[in-house]
Design a protein around this nucleic acid. Structure first.
Length: 351
DNA sequence: CGCGGGTTTCCTGATT
DNA sequence: GAATCAGGAAACCCGC
């Protein structure tokens, strides 16, 4: 991938943040001990591991989310690597990036650093789910959310699926914010908006990819049918079987129960989605079942995921003792003896 | 290429 | 009546 230059920072705000289906691009090598880079790769690495390019990506995201005029940024400040950036004090950032962006950047840096410290305790999967949560939570506060009509979202999701069959066009790869209907099965919505950063999911965003690269990947991808049993009703606008890009393969090591677990063990992020009923027994409850299903669908790049389907997959876990039945209680499940990584003593955190 | 694991999708019927 | 649960069946993708 080409390196993001300052012009990327300047123009990035005009591009759509959420783009799907581009996750397996070849990546440059990374410093020893750091995560593999990818689109918006800085999220996968701890800030002290960032290269100059990754610092630029990070800056780019914040410039965009702040809607600032990036032309006011100092070139020299943008051309630093992660270790240098981490040595900067809050005052230096304010001086360098201004009173608005400076504190925001400093806070973001601290958040990312502490997050990676937690992730080193909890494993790489959590990293992925955290970022999905971030994306999800950011979508909830998306400025256009209030303008979306429920019916329009469904139509736009459907349209996106079919757009993917055609030539990739960045604007057509926009991931629309979730419909308010998915948030209405619980109570408070305000608790969702606690995410200070406007980060997008690295799985779902690819901010510096050229159309050329996209075309190359498209040509290399064989024709695939959608996962699972085909829907009874054939899609109206052309057969999905003719789509070369309708792939829904699960990323390796990503299982539903792990996804659920990772939401649960991040209480500061999952507020309102799920909650522990009995933390020590591993009993938990879906508060916003459709929202969680939508998140799972986002992760699997399956816009038609519902709680009904997700719950079927959950029920299969009973046989494997990954989950245990909780009789008589709706939306309540319990981790079984073949699940792991959710116990307080396992993750080493007091949640 | 076949197989098994892990879903995804659809469905019917029961329960809340 | 709607939402959810339960679980069978079929289909699919992926890794081995």
């Amino acid at each position: 991938m080409s390196s993001p230059c300052l012009s990327s920072v300047l123009t990035h705000a005009n591009l759509t943040v959420y783009q799907t289906g581009l996750m397996d691009m070849p990546q440059p090598s990374t410093p020893p001990g750091c995560s593999r880079t990818s689109a918006a790769s800085y999220r996968l690495s701890s800030p002290p591991c960032w290269s100059e390019d990754q610092v630029l990506e990070w800056l780019s995201d914040h410039v965009e989310s702040s809607r600032l005029d990036a032309s006011t940024l100092s070139l020299s400040l943008c051309a630093v690597d992660g270790p240098t950036l981490c040595q900067m004090k809050a005052e230096e950032m304010v001086a360098g990036f201004g009173p608005q962006l400076g504190p925001q950047l400093h806070q973001s840096l601290q958040d990312l650093r502490s997050r990676h410290e937690v992730q080193s305790l909890s494993g790489p999967e959590l990293n992925e789910t955290c970022q999905l949560l971030d994306t999800f939570l950011d979508n909830l506060s998306f400025p256009l959310l209030s303008t979306i009509r429920i019916g329009a979202v469904e139509e736009s999701v459907s349209r996106r699926d079919f757009d993917l069959q055609d030539d990739y066009d960045l604007p057509s790869m926009t991931l629309e914010p979730l419909a308010p209907e998915y948030l209405s099965d619980g109570d408070d919505r305000s608790s969702f908006n606690d995410s200070g950063s406007n980060e997008s999911d690295p799985e779902l965003s690819c901010q510096f990819i050229s159309k050329l690269q996209i075309k190359v990947e498209q040509e290399q991808t064989p024709v695939k049918r959608p996962r699972g049993r085909p829907p009874k009703v054939i899609q109206q606008r052309g057969s999905i079987f003719s789509s070369p890009k309708k792939t829904k393969h699960a990323p390796r090591g990503t299982h539903l129960w792990e996804f659920i677990r990772d939401i649960l063990i991040h209480p500061e992020k999952n507020q309102g989605l799920m909650k522990w009923e009995d933390r020590h027994e591993g009993v938990f409850k879906f508060l916003k079942s459709e929202a969680v299903a939508q998140m799972w669908g986002q992760k699997k790049r399956n816009s038609s995921m519902t709680y009904e389907k997700l719950s079927r997959a959950m029920r299969y876990y009973y046989k494997r003792d990954i989950l245990e039945r909780v009789d008589g209680r709706r939306l309540v499940y319990k981790f079984g003896k073949n699940s792991s990584g959710w116990k307080i003593e396992e993750i080493g955190l007091h949640l």
